[in-house]
Amino acid sequence: MILDILVQGAQMAAVLAAAPLVTGFVRKVKARLTRRKGPSLIQPYRDLARLMRKDAVVAENASWLFRVFPYLVFAATWVAAALVPTFAGGLVFSWTADLIAIIALLGTARFFLALAGMDVGTAFGGIGSSREMMISSLAEPAMMLTMFALALVAGSTQLSTVSAVLASPEVGLRVSLGMALVALVMVAIAENARIPIDNPATHLELTMVHEAMVLEYSGRHLAMIELAAMLKLVLYLSLIACVFVPWGIAPAGAGVAALALGAALWLAKLAAGGFLLAFFETSIAKMRVFRVPDFLGAALMLGLLGTLLLFVSRSM
């Protein structure tokens, strides 16, 4: 029991500690792919520390909501990230929230962030919030249908059970799982505001979504939001890894050796995912904002098709 709680605590600490590193790694790989040297891997930690130490400059007409919501956004994302099995399955609190609840927690975080973007009453904040909600209005159902497909294969919506079932040999290759993977990757790209949906590196131009929404933020509040965004990237990478590459996750009650192996494998999976993301981002151009619905509509249809196939195949 004590070990279980330790594992859960370690997992919460690990996602938090790894989040800036993964972002730094993706930036580094992108820089290397475009033949730049790029900032150091630990630059995001330095950025966060610097932001935290600075004064927070808050617009004159900002309300309490503007100052409270960054912490709530961070908290909701962190709770969601802590419930995704990373290096160890059978987390103590895994029964607190299943897949559907994890998606909904991310929805809560986004709801708060979109409202915070509208608090000061500037054009940029509004456009960012509006577009963020537009993207999520398609990404969230696509994600939900993908989760339906996974849950139907596993017969459960508990993430640790899903992961354990998909790791077992009898599942095998399935068309619906392939569709779910593609849909999930597309949603992950959209939700993390990556190219081709949004560009995390821009700080101007009307094309930006996430950055426009948080334009008014500075200092510690911005640090919390940035950290939440980094956490979200780790969450999605871990989610895809624990469902589609579930091997190596230490089962419940495993020894220290298995845990260490799981942790090493998790880092390797994050690195592989981060590399693929960077490679994909470098090789593709950003799309116009009104092409995004086509992109996400495809994800939605793939998710629906995957679920439909499972519904239909169940009777045969």
Binding site: K54, D55, A56, V58, A59, E60, T122, L204, L215, R220
Partner: peptide
């Protein structure tokens, strides 16, 4: 870290 807060006009880019 820091708990200082400064009020300023909205930035709006």
């Amino acid at each position: 870290a820091s708990s200082r807060l400064r009020r300023a006009p909205a930035w709006d880019c």
